[in-house]
Structure formats: structure tokens, C-alpha cells
Amino acid sequence: MCQTEKNRNETARRNVCEKADRTEESGARETMRLEIESRSRNEEFARVAVAAFASRLDPTLMEIDDLKTAVSEAVTNAVIHGYGGGDGIIYIEVSVCGRELTVTVRDTGVGIPDIPKAMEPMFTTDPAGERSGMGFAFMEAFMDQVEVRSEVGRGTAVTMKKQMGG
């Protein structure tokens, strides 16, 4: 497939997904929602569940591993930072439209006061220095697009997109 044709197909697909989202027409986008308690043992469950949902895009093994790593980073952030190791619920929504997967990991925890600073590679709030500060850098390395919305005292939502399969 030549690049122009590929771009045209991509634009057509995006239009279908956007129209479906606007009109809430069912069919074009498939969605899964998950609510889990904020516990470290749920990190593995979350990434495996998202990967299982993503398998309908027929992704490569590498794409699945990338997705699992990115989801693990976002969920770990919610457990450690959002809820500070305490109680809380982590909301995960994953959807596919065409070849694009969108996953949002949301908490209603403390929020991030300075998002650009939090996203700087090697920035960490851990005084022991055991945490690498690479969580957001990893999400950006393994996904096509990462968007962070946060409000202090209200929580944080990380939305990531990735083209998979095909």
C-alpha cells in the first residue's frame, strides 16, 4: 500500500470513529470498563486484562508487551502517587476503533500540581531514590500518544493511544 493510500484509509477510519463517537452510534467503537481497588497486586491484573481486550486487534507480541508496560506504569502511578498506597478505586477504560486502541487510567486521588514537571524524565518524588522517575517516559516510549489531565485534590487521568495490528 502506498503512503498516500494509507493516509487516505487512515483519515477515512478516523472519520468513521469520530462520527461514531459524536452520534454515539454503536458498532464502530468497542469499549471495556474496569474498576479495581488500588492495590499493588492489581497492577498485573490490569495490564493483562487490557492486553486481553486488545487482542481483538490482532496485535504483534511486541505491541502487546508495549501496551502492558504502559498500562502498568499508569496503574502503578495511581497506586503509589494518586492514592499514596492507601484505599481508592482505579478506573480503566479501553476502547478500539479501527486499528487504534485508546486506554484511560483514572484515579480520584491527590492529583498532580505540576504536570510538565511530573512528566520530566527522571523526576521522582521518592526520597529513597528507588523509583526511576521514568513512568511517564515509558508510557511515551511505548505508546503513540499520551495525555495527562489532573486536578489537585480531584485526581488524575492518563489517556494513551496506540495503533495496533495490521
Binding site: D65, K68, G129, R131, A137
Partner: peptide, 12 residues
Amino acid sequence: FMDSTGIGILLN
């Protein structure tokens, strides 16, 4: 499987 937590530990 490994994520950035593993990296932090290895670097330390």
C-alpha cells in the same frame, strides 16, 4: 515482564 519499577531498582 518488567516496567520502570524494575529499572529504578537496577539503577539503584
